[in-house]
Amino acid sequence: MQLHELMNPDYSENPFLLYRKLHEQGPLIRGGDNVIISGSHAVVEALLNDRRAGKNYMDSVRLRFGADAAGMPVFRGMNRMFLVLNPPEHTRLRGLVMKSFGAKEIQSLREMVLAVANDLADSLAGRYSCDLAREFAFPLPVRIICRMLNVPESDAARLGHSASALVRVFDPQITQEDLLKAGVAFTELEEYFSALIVSRRGSEASDLVSLFLRGGTDGDRLQHDEIIANVILLFIAGHETTSNMLCNTVLALYENPIELERLRQDHSLIPAAITECIRYDSSVQMLYRTALDEIEVADHVIPRGTSLFLSLGAANHDPAVFSSPEILNIRRREGRSLSFGGGIHHCMGYRLALAEMEVALEVLLTRLPDMRPVTGGIQRNNRANLRGISILPVTKDST
């Protein structure tokens, strides 16, 4: 399998085809010169937890877009995000915000999510139809991250639009037009958050922006550009992935009515249902790593400098770990989903994402019990990565 095959549009509609192909070709697949692809749960998990499989973001940019792309402002800016860094820089930046996503903080955030979800449900109450993606799933996480950054919610829609354009740079199917739009979006977000950061200097508040400004010691303060890049990262990470996961979850449940009915009868199954839906149709489908040193895995030696494309979607459907992986089973008790990654780059906001999805699903089942997706109007975002739904029309079930 060659790397470009991962971008086959057929896989956007039916990713199971890709997962099967990856499993058939073995745990380590040569995807081109110095490129390895894997959809094996054991291999992907091992590499995510191996610090020798690290990040080299600019190499991935050059591989995908050519040597000149590394000089583009959007990529220079994103290269400052702790998401793409290795220790010790990654450790320093990640440590500054970990305290805002700890287990103790999630309860207050859950209450915030409940208030926002109910407010959005209020706007949909009594209506015969709506677009659940644009009117519920997308505004929910963006309003939450706005509150965490202490950004006016009146700016949420504009910032969310820019974030959606910028996040396309993580997708291998990006077009030249999309890349240009992403560059414009990065500039818009950079200017917005730069002004915000200047206005927060000296603040003793507990929002994430103020936390970054106070982070470090006098001799190791974060630079202005570092703060901008990582505030942008928190914004896009707290927006796009969660909204896509929520849409994928809703659609997966309605396409499996027996599982949906079980959930309707017993809301205590919601956490397990979320876990299974994230495994079944993950938002983040692929992670990229570079072999920083020689690595032995699955009885093979991966040479230093090899580009590693790790399919989380395929790993979550590995029949060696999950029985009948293409069947949604909300009472499944086997394996571990890799949808939030692993190792030192495990998703820092996974507790918040789970809380948002659990609360959102509870609100939807309670407040919109007659909701039914209109299959013919659903539009997927046609991405090889950050898989999701752009339009999710729902109507009241007449049965």
Results as ranks from 00 to 15, higher is better:
3 L>Q: 14
5 E>G: 02
9 P>Q: 03
16 F>D: 15
19 Y>Q: 09
19 Y>L: 06
21 K>Q: 15
22 L>E: 03
23 H>E: 14
31 G>F: 04
33 D>M: 11
47 L>Y: 01
48 L>H: 03
49 N>S: 13
57 Y>I: 10
60 S>H: 14
61 V>S: 12
63 L>G: 13
65 F>I: 04
76 R>M: 12
77 G>E: 10
78 M>W: 10
89 E>L: 09
91 T>P: 04
92 R>H: 07
92 R>W: 04
93 L>E: 00
99 K>C: 01
104 K>W: 07
109 L>W: 03
112 M>G: 13
116 V>E: 15
120 L>I: 04
122 D>G: 12
124 L>T: 04
129 S>P: 11
129 S>E: 15
132 L>G: 02
135 E>N: 11
141 P>I: 09
148 M>P: 06
150 N>D: 15
150 N>E: 14
151 V>F: 00
155 D>W: 00
157 A>Y: 14
158 R>L: 11
161 H>R: 14
163 A>G: 15
166 L>N: 01
166 L>Q: 03
175 T>W: 05
176 Q>K: 13
180 L>N: 11
180 L>T: 12
184 V>A: 09
185 A>W: 02
196 L>A: 15
197 I>K: 00
204 E>G: 09
205 A>M: 09
209 V>T: 12
210 S>F: 01
214 R>S: 15
216 G>R: 00
217 T>D: 12
226 E>T: 00
230 N>T: 00
230 N>I: 01
237 A>F: 00
245 M>P: 05
250 V>K: 02
250 V>P: 13
254 Y>M: 06
255 E>W: 09
256 N>Y: 02
257 P>K: 06
270 I>M: 13
278 I>D: 00
279 R>T: 11
282 S>F: 02
283 S>C: 14
283 S>Q: 00
285 Q>M: 11
287 L>N: 09
293 D>L: 06
295 I>W: 06
299 D>C: 11
305 G>T: 05
307 S>I: 09
308 L>N: 10
315 A>Q: 02
316 N>H: 07
328 L>K: 03
328 L>Q: 11
331 R>T: 11
333 R>Y: 07
337 S>C: 12
340 F>Y: 13
350 Y>D: 15
354 L>C: 07
356 E>P: 01
357 M>I: 09
363 V>P: 13
383 R>F: 10
387 R>I: 05
390 S>C: 02
391 I>S: 11
